[in-house]
Amino acid sequence: MSQSGLELLFQGQNLPRLLAGFGVTLRVAAVVLALGLSLGALLGALRTLPNRGLQVVLRGYLEIFRIVPTVVLLFVAYYLLPQLGGLNLSGEAVAVVTFTLWTAAEMSDIVRGALVAVPRHQVEAGAALGLTRAQQLRFILFPQAVPLALPGTINLATRVIKTTSLLLMISVMDLVNVGQTLVEANSHLHPTFAFWLYGALFIGYYLLCAPLSWWAKHIARQRKAVTND
């Protein structure tokens, strides 16, 4: 066997399978982020309202999803719920629902934090100028809260993408799961294969996460340009 571990990566169906795993990871992450961040933003806004009962419920929801490890949530949703007479969903559906609820919980705290961080007098000054409540939100609260929430949101998004590697626990053929089956099938042909494969996984996750940081930097720069005017 004179071939190198790198060449093995391109043999047979190895690369197409790795790309298919990349596709699964991308699909799950994209759906989860779209749903989770929107739901989280809404819940975060609700958490700034002065309704006590609502606060207790939302706070409880946040704490549960923040404290219980994601892998436990996945196991409960995938293996235990069907046994308790609940829904019996596919692995990917379970992943989307569980991760969305987790992402939304974390996002709600980021958004709440950003909203309360905008000084009260800013909104009050708007009210004094005769702006309606909607106008206060649109022109005063949101433009100042969004830049505050952005770093935390990007951080959360990259965490969500990387945590999708847990999906191998519930039979979803994601990037890491495909990678591991490739290592077991090929590493005897070339001992350095695992090194190249994990290198490929590194590139895969980098491609998923890096655009988010670039985008965040871009937005931050735009904001700066606007406020400097």
């Binding site: 043999q11 047979g12 169906q13 190895n14 197409p16 399978r17 039979s171 799961n177 591991q180 089956t181 490739l182 290592v183 077991e184 099938a185 090929n186 005897h188």
Partner: peptide
Amino acid sequence: IAVFGDLRPYGWIDQSG
């Protein structure tokens, strides 16, 4: 059927997938 995907030679995936 539940099978292993990383246990050669009992349940694994060959180069053709």
